[in-house]
């Protein structure tokens, strides 16, 4: 059955889904604010151990990837399939670089025996335990969203190749973009909360 196409419905659905994502992280921001309030000093000191350059680079990577996927929509609407695909590929590449950075960052901490449940971390006091608990959990959940986003974008790229997404039917590409921007948006807050507010 060929359904009547309603792009606005599709986009509304995507936005509503993004709201649930915002609330999902919203719950974590509640936890973060409470524990930061209770353990202000420990959070302050622990945050200094995170590498600001790595965080900054990752922020910029995500911002660029957001811009490229946004431009990819413009490209498809101008009927420039090749450029659109190129920009999507670039977005995926940047996403992978982000994950790679994250991998080394986590690896570095784990090598120093700082991970949830480690005796070294436990000996450093409750504020540090909570800071790193939240750090791993929130950035981990964020990384999971990056992975989901990458799969989503990969799927969209396939649809473009097959000409299922074209200049007058691009709402799915737009939706994948919305999702990717949200992931970016969350990072925009995670970055200062973990790396900067020292």
């Amino acid at each position: 059955m060929e359904e009547h196409r309603d792009d606005l419905a599709s986009k509304t659905g995507m936005w509503l889904f993004l709201f649930t994502e915002m609330l999902l992280f919203g719950g974590l921001f509640v936890v973060y604010s409470v524990y930061r309030y209770i353990n202000a000093d420990a959070f302050h000191l622990a945050a200094q151990e995170l590498s600001v350059p790595v965080g900054t680079i990752n922020t910029i990577i995500l911002l660029i990837s957001s811009a490229t996927i946004a431009m990819s929509v413009t490209a498809i609407r101008k009927n420039n399939k090749k450029l659109s695909l190129l920009l999507l590929g670039f977005t995926i590449l940047l996403g992978l670089v982000f994950l790679g950075n994250k991998y080394f960052e986590w690896g570095h901490h784990i090598k120093e025996n700082i991970y949830p449940g480690s005796p070294v971390l436990a000996s450093r006091g409750q504020g540090d335990v909570l800071f790193y608990g939240l750090y791993y959990f929130m950035t981990g959940l964020h990384a999971l969203h990056i992975i989901i986003g990458l799969v989503f974008i990969g799927f969209i790229a396939r649809l473009i190749i097959k000409d299922r997404i074209v200049s007058d039917n691009y709402v799915l590409l737009e939706n994948s973009g919305l999702y990717w921007h949200l992931v970016d948006l969350i990072w925009i807050f995670l970055f200062p909360l973990f790396y900067l507010i020292t």
Partner: peptide, 29 residues
Amino acid sequence: TKIHLGTLTVFIALLIAAVKSTFVLRIFM
């Protein structure tokens, strides 16, 4: 954040994050 402004640091960092997200929401999205 390199400049120590006390509690103001938090405020400024979140303010800038808010401005950034407004851009992302309004233009990118």
